[in-house]
Structure formats: C-alpha cells, structure tokens
C-alpha cells in the first residue's frame, strides 16, 4: 500500500502541472499508428498501436439467418479477446465481464452510427450477410475501448464484400467493398486521482476511479458508457462530450488515411 500511496502522490504532482508520466498533457492521445489490410485471409483487417496497446481486428463476412426482429437486415457480431499473451493480468478462459463490456461498447458505437449499411446485407428471405468483428489485443497498455473502435471501423471501411452466386459464397476474385455509411470514433476518459484524463494507459487505469467512453460522428453522440465504481458530475461529462467532438476530427483523419480514402 505504501507504493500505491507514493505513486498516487507522484501522479497528483505531475497532473497539477498538466503533465502525465509519459509527458503527455491531460487531454492528449498517445501516438496512434493505424494500418489496414494486414491479414489478407480476412475480408477486412486493421492493426493499431495506441501507444503500447497493440490490437489487431479482423472482419469476416459470412452467410447466416437474420435476427427475428430485423428480417431484412444483416447481422453484426462483435467479440473481444483479451489474449493471455497481452498482459500479466489476463488469463485464458471464457470472456470476462470486462471483455464482454469492451465488445459491447465497440459494437454499440458502430451499430448506432450506421457504420455498416445493414439494409444492404439482405440476400433473400431467411438469408443475410453476417459481419463478424473480432478485436484481439496482443499487448495491453490501457484504453481497449478506443483501440477497439478505431481498428474495427478501419477494418470495416476497408473490407471487401463476398458475393453470393448459385448458392455459394465467393470470397475471391473481383469483389466490391462492404457497404458502409458513416465513420464513428470513440474517446475514453478516466478519472485518476481526481483529474479526468484522456486515453488512460494501464498504469493510470490501475488508479482510475471511473471511466467514460463517448462515441460520436461529426454531428451526433452515438454511444456512451460509464464504467468503474466511481462517478462523474454532469459538467465533467459535458466537457468530455465537447472534447470528444474536437478530438474526433483527428481520429477520423487517421482512419481515412489508413483506409486510403
């Protein structure tokens, strides 16, 4: 507990000078490197380095049955794997509540913003395209939410679209792109020793009392999720929303550049 108290004091004194352990400002992202098309077997893929958080996201597209409440839309299924190789803290086994939360929050932003045009994924009665997004982390250093969303959106925007001909799925040859309609990005903040910081790394997450993710497009808030056992005031959330609209301009450019548009 001694070390914890010392580290807390250290973070407090850094933050009071608007500096973090890695010399970032409180509202600054780590360096983001985003690349698409790194796993050719997948219809779409992207790799992101968000500081030392390293994530590879694959998009596979197959054929399936529509959900009963959306018989004319395709399906979107998002999963997250916190691979044991990525951190001391991760164990093999069924997905933890943390992992399920990450997958569902990434999914929610993409779905709410209409990144994939689900209405164009209808094949015939009882048959639709299914889009599987798998977010795998290989080295964990905090903020899976934004690494997941950025890589998933880049993978979707760069994904090729299989064809359905004579009862068969054709995945090779000349193919078009997965129909998409929007770009969503997310910004995640953590309250650490009383200050709200953007893009927390895993050291900061260890001291975080609460966390909030805001997903937005150019105009609208599309998804939000508060996490951890602490709370936020209304004005803290409102400034996080304002900042997300500002930060998302750069994030959208990073995605567009990675996709090659």
């Amino acid at each position: 507990m001694q070390i914890r108290a010392i580290t807390e004091e250290y973070l407090k004194s850094r933050y009071s000078r608007n500096l973090r352990d890695d010399n970032r400002q409180l509202t600054e992202y780590r360096k983001i490197v985003l690349k698409t098309g790194i796993v050719p077997s997948a219809e779409g893929s992207a790799e992101i380095f968000l500081g030392n958080t390293h994530v590879i996201t694959g998009v596979k597209i197959g054929m399936g049955e529509p959900m009963p409440d959306t018989p004319e839309d395709g399906n979107l299924i998002t999963s997250n794997e916190l691979l044991p190789m990525a951190s001391e803290a991760f164990d093999a086994g069924p997905p933890s509540p943390e992992s399920i939360e990450i997958a569902r929050v990434v999914d929610r932003g993409i779905r709410a913003a209409g990144v994939v045009d689900m209405s164009k994924l209808f094949i015939e009665a009882g048959k639709v395209w299914e889009v599987f997004i798998d977010v795998h982390v290989f080295n964990y250093d905090g903020n899976m939410f934004d690494a997941g969303t950025l890589s998933a959106v880049a993978a979707l925007l760069s994904a090729r679209m299989p064809k359905y001909e004579d009862g068969k799925v054709i995945r090779e040859g000349s193919l078009g792109r997965l129909p998409t309609g929007n770009i969503v990005t997310s910004c995640t903040y953590a309250k650490v020793v009383g200050k709200v910081v953007l893009d927390p790394d895993s050291n900061e997450e260890a001291f975080a009392s609460s966390r909030i993710t805001i997903a937005n497009d150019e105009q609208y808030i599309r998804a939000m999720q508060k996490g951890l056992s602490g709370s936020f005031t209304q004005s803290e959330i409102e400034s996080a929303i304002e900042m997300s609209f500002d930060k998302s301009k750069t994030l959208r450019e990073i995605i567009k550049k990675a996709v090659g548009d």
């Binding site: 929610r108 932003g109 779905r111 709410a112 909030i212 105009q219 609208y220 808030i221 599309r222 998804a223 939000m224 999720q225 508060k226 709370s231 936020f232 005031t233 209304q234 959330i237 409102e238 929303i241 304002e242 609209f245």
Partner: peptide, 16 residues
C-alpha cells in the same frame, strides 16, 4: 445527495 452520475449508457443519436 450529490447529483453524481453512477451509471450512464447510451446508444442511438443525440445532440449535445
């Protein structure tokens, strides 16, 4: 008592 927000989730489309 404090007005603090302990849970916030949202999906859809919302302006500030």
């Amino acid at each position: 008592r404090t007005g603090n927000i302990n849970l916030l989730q949202m999906d859809g489309i919302l302006t500030r």
